[in-house]
Amino acid sequence: MNELSVEQKKFLHIQKRHRRVVGVSRVLILLSFLFVWEFTANTGIIDSFIFSCPSKIALCFWELTTDRTIFVHIGVTLYETIISFFLVIGISILAAIALWFSRKLSEILDPYMVVLNSLPKSALAPLLIVWLGANQTTIIVAGMSVAIFGSILSLYTSFSSVDPEKIKLIYTLQGTRLHAMTKVVLPSSLPAIINIMKVNIGLCLVGVIIGEFLAARNGLGYLIIYSSQVFRCAGILISLLSFIFLF
């Protein structure tokens, strides 16, 4: 290490202090929020039956962890989300590849994709239960239904926005359309694929929760519905907190 100049030291010092202020303020905000919540609930300014309060939530969380039910619920939801996520990714990549290979097919299907994508997917869940029964398959399909059409559409858009000159290069090297796919289209769409995956994991979770609202015996969606039915708002809030920690 070479000797740091006075100015550099001063700069580093200011930066360090800046970061400390930011960190401390963040924690302070959370603590004061919890404190105000607890205080107002205890003094009766807000109704703790409806709004719950941090101590009740902690107590409820303690109960749920000691009898391990919260882990079961989280596990089930996580499992369903991951399954539907991988199915969505797999199916949408295959579908987008098929659309890319056939311009006719993509033009024919385009309006259908747009309509299916703009469908309110949460309204689909009750139908799915009728069609597939109230079981885990339904929940996984509900998770997929939220993400799949948008995922295919954006993947296909990214596939077809590849520079045609790059594809021409493949042909000048005597490559086929398959080579264009594997050597150009897929590698250059990798950032887009990763982005779509990031969006999809959240969408799948939303779909799974909707499914669990309607057709489950466990999972976080079920926990929310059950808690609201017995007016245990702390339970709902714990479920919400669990989502935050899932990511």
């Binding site: 520079d163 000159e165 790059k166 000048t172 050597k183 990798l190």
Partner: peptide, 13 residues
């Protein structure tokens, strides 16, 4: 052998 107007080197390689 056809050398195109732009080099078209792939950034991911």
């Amino acid at each position: 052998g056809y050398m195109l107007q732009h080099d078209q080197l792939f950034e991911w390689r």
